[in-house]
């Protein structure tokens, strides 16, 4: 296995332009890792504004149409929604374990197992979502001429619902792709994950997608259900 921390990773993952830094390879590699993490944090800040704009729209319309939103919220399927919340939260746990394992270069099989579990849980979320979509369509919850609910603004709720869940699913799909990529790489060469900055980058992205769902769950499934 590796000697001093950073050396093994530096040998395997040090890249331009970081490799040209006037420090030893281990320090340069530490900087490269910091750079990768920093970069993804900036990108996540951008994503936060992306979703914040959507949440703002939701908030504005919900304040304007409280009753219609409560009625629409009651029409969603809370069983699927809750199940999916549990699935995603578990996937964050496995993702975090994989990231920790990879960083230390320990428990390689466990790391790979956790990555596989993360990707599988992501897929499970999409499958459940698929069933939910089918039911939504059957219950005429697609905005349009045959919309099931009486109140007009309930259509806005469901317009938002479809848009935001699809956008979230696309994000999740990208996440599954990234995790699977790490899994395949790690499968072929068990050393490749050790200290690899891509693991932490992927993990941070995964957690954000998860966190967005944590906001979406009460927004979409809980209105009108209290009391």
């Amino acid at each position: 296995m590796s000697g001093a921390p950073g050396e093994a990773g530096a040998a395997a993952h040090l890249r331009e332009p970081w490799s040209e830094l006037e420090t030893g390879p281990a320090a340069a590699f530490a900087r490269q890792r910091d750079g990768a993490t920093f970069g993804i944090w900036i990108f996540l800040a951008s994503e936060v504004l992306f979703f914040a704009a959507l949440f703002l729209i939701y908030t504005a319309y919900r304040i304007a149409n409280p009753e219609a939103f409560a009625a629409a919220g009651r029409a969603t399927n809370i069983v699927y929604g809750t199940l999916n919340t549990a699935i995603l939260l578990t996937s964050s746990l496995t993702m975090a374990m994989a990231a920790q394992g990879a960083e230390k270069g320990l428990f390689r099989r466990l790391t790979l197992g956790c990555l596989a579990a993360t990707a599988a849980l992501g897929l499970a979320f999409l499958v459940v979502k698929g069933f939910e979509y089918r039911e939504d369509i059957e219950k005429h919850l697609v905005p349009g001429a045959h919309f099931a609910l009486r109140q007009a603004p309930a259509q806005i709720f469901f317009g938002f619902y479809w848009l935001v869940t699809v956008v979230h699913a696309i994000h999740l799909g990208i996440g599954i792709g990234l995790v699977t990529r790490l899994l395949v790489k790690g499968w072929r060469d068990p050393d490749v994950l050790t200290e690899n900055p891509q693991v932490e980058v992927t993990a941070l992205y995964w957690h954000l997608v998860d966190l967005v769902w944590v906001f979406l769950y009460p927004m979409l499934y809980l209105p009108g259900r209290a009391g």
């Binding site: 951008s46 504004l49 806005i156």
Partner: peptide, 22 residues
């Protein structure tokens, strides 16, 4: 700032192409 434009245009796209009322 750009992500907010992205969302806004996405909503225009969704409303126009898929009839989602926003």
């Amino acid at each position: 700032a750009t992500p907010v434009l992205a969302v806004t245009l996405l909503l225009v796209f969704a409303e126009r192409s898929f009839g989602l009322p926003i």
